[in-house]
Design a protein around this nucleic acid. Structure first.
Lengths: 343, 343
DNA sequence: CTGAAAGCGCTTACAG
DNA sequence: CTGAAAGCGCTTACAG
């Protein structure tokens, strides 16, 4: 089956009618529609997307941009794939398809995005890993292509975003630790300019302040957001002159490396050092003692991202009247044993 | 900047010349080309992909289909993202872009692929997780869309594929263990119909046969290919009446769960039970004792997949004269301590 | 070296 | 309810 023309010839009707029948337009004789649908199914006809897109001005495809930095690739967890389920469940309501756009590691993310947007391969974009200042946001705003970001940024203004509650997590973690008598509380921070690092640290500092604990820069340990980074964090922690009694982690897999380094040194998490992890993660569930961390649903986050995005798309916004608001995504404390001791 | 028409008007030349200049056609005055390129850069013009595709009959996009089964999502490792680097490095030579197509978990992979292919969103496809019989291969063959599969299958005939050397790994593992005196060697196998499970088991059985060891079905432990599956495998192993002295794993992250379960039972890998893991994995590197496993480069595999695919595409095959051959991807033994004892 | 024109495969006013 | 026709944004023979 080549195109709609062949299908129309085969049915001996016009291509206009075939198109209307296939697209569920109301002004088509039911018998005609039935014949068209049956023939399309039989001959395996599906409309060529380029033809549709060109005529309609929309591609019916939503893009999810994936950074493929070495860091992401070597330590990727199920984060993006976890999101796709929720995203697709919403997009499917409107016959929109999701594609993932992996930015090559040797290409500037801004240039890559620019190219993808200009080529009009997608109707709207989801971007993530927002930097402190992120030119991509200005680009998308200027181009007027609907988008939502996973993560805030100082760039742009009044664009829709959803971000995990890094501030809340940092505050909750500090509160718990202080309640157990801790005052020297270390924290891990990313080694790059990703915005969540700034927010997490700000939350930590303001929480300390609330408790009247002075901020000590030497307790901020900058490492890669990876398992190896956790190992490194453990290492640096052990080298500190006046060793902290607690540490708060920023990335889910760090706990695994941290535990390992601590164990090597005979320092037992939950006895000699209080540890609070970040997002609950299947792979970290085996840790002993059980890690105190924070729970969230990737699927629900995907749903919310999709609805926020659709609310920003003129063609769909009426379905989501209050969905275009930016929001902070809450995480729920999962108490474990890793911080369950009084100083 | 809307389209090529506006750009041409701005330059006061015809759209044909603009197009030729932009596409590097030889018959364009160099001064004209310079002006066109400069204006396009300045105004941010990039050709609309739908327009190009419709006219040219190609999208210049290659699709990588991702299964998003619950199993993949919950235990995804860096496999696909690891592949993208190598894939993109080859595709970039020909200005081809890679997109990832995540199949929704509630959609039949075959139907999803059919839809994507019929819509002509990509020029060629890479599919993976091939099943014992896999209708997708017949579909792609019938549609005449170029493709390559990561994994063999009984379906189809004479299509290009690359598959990890499961047979070689199984044989090498058995040989090593037998050389150390083992005769009761357990093996993990996937709980679904993915083809690699059959090949791995066949390799295991033929290796046993070579050594004159009878095959014992109770030593085949069917579990999910995940860390949790490894834990489960450890559990089932410990329940066996006549406990095996060695176990061979089929999936990289299983070792982590297995170690955990063994440790819980006071069974020490590399002392009480020999363990051979599958693919070397950063996350499993911390295991103590060090896991004997097999090394391969995901990036190189990506490169080879891309070249094999291009060799199957008429427009590019002349660049890759001998690339369309199917091949078995070798893995290199990385000896560790987890099987370093004589029985 | 450049321009005018055809046409890729669709969808959608418009006319009947 | 259906058909004929225009046109989405490009690229590419073709003519000059």
């Amino acid at each position: 089956m080549k195109g709609i023309r062949q299908l129309a010839e085969h049915l001996d009707i016009s291509i206009g009618t075939v198109s209307r029948a296939l697209n569920g337009k109301p002004d088509v004789n039911e018998e005609t529609r039935r014949r068209v649908l049956a023939a399309a199914e039989e001959l395996g006809y599906v409309a060529n997307q380029s033809g549709r897109s060109l005529r309609q001005g929309t591609t019916n495809v939503i893009g999810l941009m994936i950074e493929s930095s070495k860091e992401t690739v070597e330590n990727s967890d199920n984060f993006f794939l976890g999101l796709t389920g929720g995203l697709q469940s919403v997009l499917a309501r409107h016959q929109l398809d999701l594609i993932m756009l992996p930015c090559p590691s040797d290409e500037d993310p801004h240039e890559y995005l620019k190219r993808m947007v200009a080529r009009r391969v997608v109707d709207a974009m989801i971007i993530s890993a927002t930097q402190r200042t992120d030119k991509r946001i200005d680009l998308l705003s200027k181009t007027k292509i609907p988008f939502v970001t996973l993560g805030r940024s100082l760039s742009g203004s009044n664009y829709p975003w959803i971000d995990l509650d890094f501030d809340g997590v940092a505050n909750c973690a500090v509160d718990r630790l202080v309640a157990q008598g801790h005052r020297r509380i270390a924290i891990s921070a990313p080694s790059n300019d990703i915005n969540l690092g700034f927010i997490f640290l700000d939350g930590y500092r303001s929480a300390l302040k609330r408790h009247g604990i002075p901020f000590d820069p030497s307790l901020v340990i900058r490492v890669k957001s990876s398992e190896q980074g956790g190992y490194q964090a453990g290492h640096e922690l052990l080298l500190l002159k006046e060793r902290p009694t607690a540490v708060i982690l920023i990335y889910e897999l760090m706990a695994i490396g941290l535990y390992r380094r601590l164990m090597e040194a005979g320092v037992i998490p939950g006895r000699d050092l209080a540890v609070i992890g970040f997002r609950e993660e299947p792979r970290a569930k085996f840790l002993q003692p059980a890690l105190t961390c924070f729970r969230m649903s990737l699927r629900d986050l995907g749903v919310d991202l999709a609805e926020t995005l659709l609310a920003a798309m003129p063609a769909y916004s009426h379905f989501y009247p209050d969905g275009a608001r930016s929001k902070i995504w809450p995480l729920e404390l999962v108490p474990g044993e890793s911080d369950a001791f009084r100083l």
